[in-house]
Design a protein around this nucleic acid. Structure first.
Lengths: 265, 265
DNA sequence: CGCCGACTTGAATTCCTTCAAGTACGGTGG
DNA sequence: CCACCGTACTTGAAGGAATTCAAGTCGGCG
C-alpha cells in the first residue's frame, strides 16, 4: 500500500538486498559466480510496509518482486464467508510477487506482519537474468517447488492434525525456518503474529488458539510470555507436532543432481 | 509399484504421450514450434499402474516423470497419527515426479486412483530439453506455479470452509479441471474416488462425507448414483462452494508477459 | 451363491466454535 | 505521572459441526 520508496538503486551490492536473495538460494542450490554476479547487478528499490499493509493484492498483476529485508509477512486468501486463511509465512530473504512474472493476476494476498522492509525488483529484469543464467533459473524454480512442498504440508496440517499438533507444528516450522534464514535460535523467538493470525494460519479460532497455547504451556512443551515463545524440548515438541523437516528441503541437492549438471551456463 | 514397462520408445510422436504434455502446457503457455519439437523427441516408456499403486513414494528419489495418459491419481501425505491427506489430484496430461529433477527425495506420495496408464520420461532428459528451450522451461515452471496456487486454495478449502462447501468445492474443481483437460463436460462425470478418498481430500471422515453428499442431493445441488455425479446448476453450485476458477490460472498469459518476451529462444 | 469392499444409518461423544464478558498491556495525551 | 483508550489476550458457558463406534445394506465379482 503505502510504500515510501527511497530509490536506493543498486550500489554496494556486496551485502545488499540481492545478496540476501542469493544467499537464500545458495542454501539449496549451487549458484555459479557469474549467476550470482548477474543477480547482484539487478536494480532495486527499497521500500517499507506498515503493519497489515499489502505487498501484493489478489487479482492484481504484480510487476515487481519484493525481497524481505526485515520483518515478516504472510500470504493469505479470503473465503466468501468472510474467513481468512494464511497459507504461508515469509521472512528475511523471502520473495513475494514473483509469480507476477508468469501470471496476469495474483491468486493471493501478501500482507505485512508488523513493519516490513523490502527491496522491489522489476520482474522483467529478474526473469531476464534468470533465463540468461540457467543455474539461477533452476535455483528460483527450486525455490517455487519448495514453497509448493510447504503448502502441501500445510494442507496436511490443517486437514489431518488436531489443534494441538497443528499449532505446535507451526511453531516448529517457524522456529526452524527462522534458524535457516539466519535469524537466530529455532527454539526461542518472538512470534510475529497475534493469536488471531495464528488462528488464521491453522484454520482455528483465536479463542481456541488461546486455550491450546495455554495447554501447551501446561504440558511443559512451550514457555511463553506475551508473544515470546520458547520450545522447551525440541525433540519432544517435534514428536507431539508430528513435525519432520524434510518438506522444507533444507539440504542442498548433491552435485550430481540432474538440474545441477545437465544445465548449460 | 508394479509397472509393466512396455518400452515403447518415442515413435509416432504426433499424438503420443509427449504431445499430451505439450498440449497441456500450451493451455497456459506459448510453446514455440522448436520447443515443442524438442519435447516431442524425448524418449519415454509406457507403463501401467493398478489401483492404489504408487507412482511416487515419499522419501525416494524419482528419476523419471510420469505423464498421465488415462485414469486419475492423487498426491498424498501421511500424518503420524495414521491419517492420510490427499493434497492434489492428477489427470490426463498431468505430471508426477518431476520434482525429482530438483530434490534428492520426494516429499509426498503419488498413488493411482483406479487404473492408470502413464508415460515415464527420464528427468535428466526432460530438464536438459527444458533448459535448452527457455520457453519450455517457462511453461513447466508456470505449471509448477499453478500447482502451488491450487495447493494454497486447498489450504483455504480445508482450513476455512465447512464440510458442505468443502466437498462441493472439490466437485467444482474436479469438474472444471476435467473439462480443461478435454475429458468432457464439467458438470457430469464419474468421480474416480471412493467416499473414503473424498474424505482424505477434504480433511473429513468418510461417514461425514456420506452424510454431506446426501445433503447436497437433498438440496438439489447435485444428483448422483453411485460415483456418477451431476452438478445440477453450475452457478448455484459455485456460489455454495465459494468456488471461483481464478486460482487454476486457466487462461493463457498475454503475449506481453515478461516471461513470454524477455526469454531468449 | 457367498464374499468383500464400499456405502449407509443411528446414537453417543468430542473437539472446536460461538457468544459474551472481562483483564492486561502499550501507547497517547493531559 | 496518571487517566484513558484500543487492541490483544483471557475466561466461561452453551451450542454445534464433525467424529467415533457399531451395525447394517448394497452391489459387483469370483
Amino acid at each position: 500500500m503505502k510504500m515510501e520508496a527511497i530509490t536506493n538503486v543498486g550500489r554496494k551490492a556486496g551485502s545488499g538486498p540481492l545478496a540476501l536473495l542469493a544467499d537464500r538460494l545458495a542454501r539449496h542450490s549451487q549458484l555459479p559466480a557469474a549467476a550470482r554476479r548477474a543477480l547482484l547487478a539487478l536494480p532495486f528499490t527499497r521500500c517499507r510496509f506498515e503493519p497489515k499493509a499489502f505487498l501484493l493484492l489478489e487479482g492484481e498483476k504484480s510487476l515487481a518482486s519484493h525481497i524481505l529485508l526485515s520483518g515478516f509477512a504472510q500470504r493469505n486468501k479470503l473465503a466468501g464467508s468472510g474467513g481468512r486463511q494464511i497459507v504461508a509465512l515469509l521472512m528475511k530473504g523471502g520473495l513475494a510477487g514473483f509469480e507476477g512474472a508468469f501470471f496476469p493476476a495474483a491468486d493471493h494476498n501478501v500482507q505485512a506482519l508488523g513493519t516490513v522492509e523490502a527491496a522491489a525488483i522489476p520482474n522483467r529484469a529478474l526473469v531476464a537474468v534468470a533465463f540468461a543464467h540457467p543455474m539461477l533459473a533452476a535455483a528460483l524454480w527450486r525455490e517455487s517447488l519448495i514453497e509448493a512442498s510447504v503448502a502441501r504440508e500445510w494442507i496436511l496440517n490443517v486437514g489431518r492434525r488436531d489443534a494441538r499438533a497443528r499449532i505446535l507444528h507451526l511453531l516448529c516450522e517457524f522456529g526452524l525456518s527462522r534458524e535457516l534464514a539466519g535469524l537466530g535460535a529455532g527454539d526461542r523467538f518472538e512470534l510475529p503474529m497475534s493469536q488471531e493470525e495464528l488462528a488464521d494460519a491453522t484454520g482455528l479460532t483465536a479463542v481456541h488458539v488461546n486455550r491450546v497455547l495455554q495447554g501447551l504451556s501446561g504440558e511443559g512443551l512451550i514457555e511463553r510470555q506475551r508473544r515470546r515463545i520458547r520450545i522447551v524440548d525440541r525433540r519432544r515438541a517435534r514428536r507431539a507436532a508430528d513435525f519432520s523437516p524434510a518438506y522444507l528441503h533444507p539440504h542442498k541437492a548433491p552435485g550430481e543432481s540432474a538440474a545441477a549438471t545437465d544445465i548449460p551456463g
